[in-house]
Design a protein around this nucleic acid. Structure first.
Lengths: 338, 338
DNA sequence: CTGTTAGCGCATTCAC
DNA sequence: GTGAATGCGCTAACAG
């Protein structure tokens, strides 16, 4: 078991003291060129690497930030994390990943364990109903940034997309294309993002003189099966809808596949718009219209907000609530050809 | 600026010593029930949380492991990391993510910075040509596990898929379907995984009495444009191939889209098999045959190998070289209907 | 059962 | 310019 070399080892070898070695390594205060070079040289010789743990303990900065997401293998979150890492790595920060799988207790656990690990900040897409865990973060005075799924808290920053606008524009697009009976596959509306997409949908109908029909809104989880099941239910209605705005791309896909089985032509007889701009929506032969959430932008900005926060010398917390615009991407599943 | 409460704070408040508090918190040796309960109670009252950094510095275990991948927003790597996190989190380990973007110097940087951070292990999918950086890891005696893209080193474990078998079976499938002029969109064959897929392809041709034609092998990067360009080149050959085994799903997709533009029927006139089982391959209307790499399995096993390594008390390194079987997934792009 | 001491590796203050 | 001493927060060894 080889021991790691410390500054004491190299100090001893050189017959000097650890403090001098430290100074040489950080080329801080006044130190003679000769000893400095000597130290640097023997440092590499002895394969020395600084123990950031000791530094962290001393300075109180770990240069680690925790990132908490439901799942990392969803393209949306993967992209956000990618952007966060790209932004923070050059500044010397490491990213510690926690997955909650949408489970509240796991999320609370993650927060605790990150606090224990002395992270310098927490960036989180929260599935939490409580705000108590976040109060604990604030009490410890460590920066907290919400992204995508936020909690509204004084002094806490957030970066989200305008889900209302996204839902509104998607629905408006369908209306302008001439569809009049537009249904909505909604997510769980106790989660803010899904509530807002739903509200945007509803408002677009109202603003354009279309009747809002409660039966046309079906809570659907983000998978193909749910999407196709929801479509089946919708088709049983009288009158049946002739378009869907789905709060999730996968549900939209399921609906489209079901439409195909029923030989209903998309988009001529029935249009579909999804949400998230998952990669597959672009690749389909019948490409799927969707709402882009610019995850890279979101991650980048969340990281920047965090950096501002740690850089700020004032004790007062800066609260930034950034709302990114969405972009409606019109593809074949809703683009009527004249 | 609120200070974090330490065991000294709670010791002082109780008029006892820090050591006692520590013992109470870890309910280790013999300690009176009364003081223990008292300590525990005031600990929550004072909102105490253990500083793992100090513990790490003392014990030499940080309970952090570094995971290094090219990019985290690729489904394959995202899934691997998901599995690693799921496996390691219950054991108290945190995952630190580093992205290399396939850049060798960034990879070396990542390794250094992880070593500095005193990680307990490094799990890496390496884009590196050198093995020197890994020698530094071994010199520090910290467990190293390669996944997907390995380096062959004595005493170092790895978890990879059988790329040769994957390439072989994909090609064999095309042969059995009756295609005789089978081309290969290869990745950069200086990387082992691409070399092995290529070798599997070649061997399948040879074993089945088909001529191996150098012109039928085109180095193609993993994107749609490259795929469609490669297809164009292939069609200029005389005789042109009538099937492709592509080492990447995206290149396969590009080829298929190009075939469609040229009104060449897939799979009747031309078959395509990709590699990786990216989500979109399943969702396409013309679903794409591909080779599954079981990323979840790979991540899980890599994590388990790491855990075995840290658990092992013996000084000698355990070397496990695990090769996971691939699974050929036959879909419409290569399934001739009789 | 509990207090005392020491050390993990480093940077920093105060002397010289 | 360099050495000596100190503390970051915690645990483990040794006393009592």
């Amino acid at each position: 078991m080889k021991k790691k070399t410390t500054i004491y080892d190299i100090a001893e070898k050189l017959g000097i003291t650890a403090a001098t070695v430290s100074r040489a390594l950080n080329n801080n205060s006044k130190i003679s060129e000769t000893t400095k070079k000597l130290v640097l040289k023997t440092a590499v010789e002895m394969n020395y690497e600084q123990n950031k743990l000791a530094l962290a303990l001393k300075s109180g900065k770990s240069y680690n930030v925790g990132v908490v997401v439901p799942r990392i293998d969803m393209n949306f979150f993967g992209s956000i994390i990618r952007a966060i890492e790209d932004e923070l790595a050059p500044k010397g920060y490491h990213i510690i990943i926690c997955q909650t799988h949408g489970d509240e207790s796991k999320e609370n656990e993650s927060i605790d364990t990150l606090l224990n690990a002395q992270v310098d900040g927490i960036l989180i897409s929260s599935s939490n109903k409580e705000i108590e865990p976040f109060n604990r973060v604030l009490a410890k005075n460590i920066p907290l940034v919400f992204f995508d799924r936020k909690k509204t808290m004084k002094g806490v920053s957030s970066v989200v997309i305008d889900d209302f606008e996204g839902g509104y524009n998607a629905t408006l697009h369908l209306i302008k294309q001439g569809y009049t009976r537009i249904a909505h596959l909604s997510g769980n509306r106790s989660i803010e993002i899904y509530k807002n997409r739903y509200l945007g949908y509803k408002q677009a109908l109202i603003d354009n003189g279309l009747e809002f029909n409660e039966d046309y809104v079906i809570q659907t989880s983000s998978d193909r099966i749910s999407g196709s099941n929801s479509l089946k239910s919708l088709l049983k209605l009288n009158p049946a809808p002739n378009a869907i705005f789905s709060a999730s791309d996968l549900a939209a896909l399921g609906a489209i596949q079901e439409l195909k089985l029923k030989h209903i032509k998309v988009p001529n007889e029935f249009a579909v718009v999804g949400f998230s701009n998952e990669p597959f929506t672009k690749f389909m032969e019948l490409s799927i219209s969707t709402v882009d959430q610019s995850p890279l932008e979101m991650g980048k900005i969340a990281a920047q907000v965090f950096l501002e926060q740690v850089a700020s010398t004032t004790d007062e917390k800066i609260e930034k609530n950034i709302v990114l615009p969405t972009e409606l991407i019109i593809r074949k599943s809703s683009a009527l050809v004249d």
